[in-house]
Design a protein around this nucleic acid. Structure first.
Lengths: 295, 295
DNA sequence: CACCGATCATCAGTGGTCCTGATAGTCACT
DNA sequence: AGTGACTATCAGGACCACTGATGATCGGTG
């Protein structure tokens, strides 16, 4: 019962992802024989078949194990990265990841301030899907991340606890629903989200608050997607809103002044859109400087 | 860089906990020599000293690693337990862990129902600190757990995501503050929690809602502990409240009718006390039966 | 339908890893 | 300074995990 070796788990995950023993062997720098044996020992350890062969696909038990393998490997990588930060000299680089909805004007100012106080540091800003950011911060590929979500005013943002990360609020805006100017509700001062659960919504997972998130905070179903917007740019999405293709929930500043649209705040339930800065518990000096900017 | 082996991490954690190489060796069934070598390779891998010797204590880097080691080992154990559930025959036993505040009358009825539908299974109810329950469910030492907390009505209970666990609501009660009958606020119909932040509170981590939880939901400091109650029995705590030693927050049913005390509901912020049943995503039949009881 | 290419399983051999047991070194305490 | 308890180091051996070669099995193809 030496089982649950991270080594084996990693090759298992790779084989399952590539659906091939040989391809996994190439990716990991093993022989195919080694991979075959590793899977065999793993299957012996847990006393079950984890993969169907030919075609290669996870069995039910294998699928279950995969659900554990990802977080486990991620946490292990986070631990390594965390220690590496303590040991190696702090690099002269600051890579910040930001979700598309999480790029307020303040951020540019903050980066400028870091540039002034840490002249040698090479700044990089990467725009990434919000869901990927915490993992990248935990594994050290990002020195800091800017995440965002709609949430109750007192609640913290829902972040997966991959590693002990620190966060601090960057910006909190009212959550609004973007409506075309001729929409029946466009004249309202405010509205309750539940009343719009059956309206036509645009499904824009990165350019607006995801519909799934609305369902989650409301604890209900509804919000049927009328059309899908795959881009990350809120401005493009708002043109669709103006054209009457559907509604979208966004932080207020992004909707203000967009022609053809009206922003009506959501007041029931009480919701805000919050942007938070995320960084390692023990950040490099430049990341720490970025964080103190928002104190 | 073969590092971050769970094997090494486990002995590191043991050494740090027992503050002794030799004791860790005894506990793990190794020679002291082996433990010494394992720590050495771990320290070589991460290129830092992790433990001070004589006396044995974690260095700052070691402390950091310890923060990762616990969750990692726990998740690994959870993965093993999860697969073991799939493989081994479902045992004829149902062990349920319950927090002291999470034993509503319904639970007894639910256990009785399981006893009726699954006559062969041996029922066990263990009362445990709420904080330990999720980990024990994840590792399979409990088949189900009953957890509780004060939370906003729409929010899920804050559970560490050690493993994919399923939960379902058992009971939701108003959150009340228990006051002695002669307290100035005892006549009030309701009260706002913030107004009591500077009152005298009893610090009862298991027999009432922990003060830290009140600070967390309020997002503020305050709630200075006037006295500490280490027991797990709310009734004993309420005697202290009646005697005027301090206040305590509890679910309404536990305070109702206790002589010398008055229960005043907290209405601002909107808070409830919720009890949830926690079990594996793929529970044994008896645990599943228990869960369906609360559908 | 026989063949071929690709893929996974199996096997023997080997280098390295990780133990044990013994011994040396080091510290705290008297 | 002496003692006892502890950790570090070393040599040796068992075992494990890899490579490379070979065998088995499947899908596609002329």
């Amino acid at each position: 019962m030496s089982a649950m070796d991270l080594h084996l788990l990693r090759t298992f995950e790779t084989v399952a992802r590539l659906r091939s023993f040989s391809a996994a062997a190439r990716e990991l720098g093993y022989t195919q024989s080694a991979v075959s044996q590793q899977i065999a020992t793993l299957e012996t350890d847990v006393r079950t078949r984890l993969l169907d062969r030919r075609p290669v696909a996870p069995t039910p038990a294998g699928g279950r194990l995969l659900e554990h393998a990802g977080p486990l490997l991620l946490r292990a990588a986070a631990a390594r990265a965390d220690l590496a930060r303590l040991v190696t000299a702090p690099g002269a680089r600051l890579t910040v990841g930001a979700a598309p909805l999480a790029q307020p004007p303040v951020l540019a100012g903050a980066l400028a301030a870091v540039h002034r106080t840490h002249p040698g540091v090479a700044l990089t800003l990467r725009v990434l899907p919000a869901a990927e950011i915490p993992a990248l911060v935990a594994t050290g590929e990002l020195d800091a991340g800017v995440v965002e979500a709609a949430t109750a005013p007192t609640d913290p943002l829902p972040l997966p606890d991959l590693a002990p990360l620190a966060s601090r609020v960057v910006l909190e805006s009212p959550l609004v629903v973007a409506l075309p100017t001729d929409h029946p509700l466009a004249r309202h001062e405010w509205l309750r989200l539940a009343d719009l659960a059956d309206a036509r919504w645009l499904d824009a997972p990165t350019a607006a608050v995801p519909l799934g998130r609305l369902r989650a905070v409301l604890g209900s179903d509804g919000f049927p997607p009328a059309a899908r917007y795959a881009g990350g740019d809120p401005a493009g999405l708002l043109r669709l809103v103006a054209a009457g293709h559907g509604l979208a929930a966004l932080p207020a500043p992004l909707v203000a002044g967009v022609p053809g649209t009206v922003a009506v705040p959501v007041t029931v339930p009480r919701l805000v859109h919050r942007v938070e800065l995320l960084h390692a518990a023990d950040p490099a000096p430049s990341a720490a400087a970025l964080a103190t900017f928002f104190e």
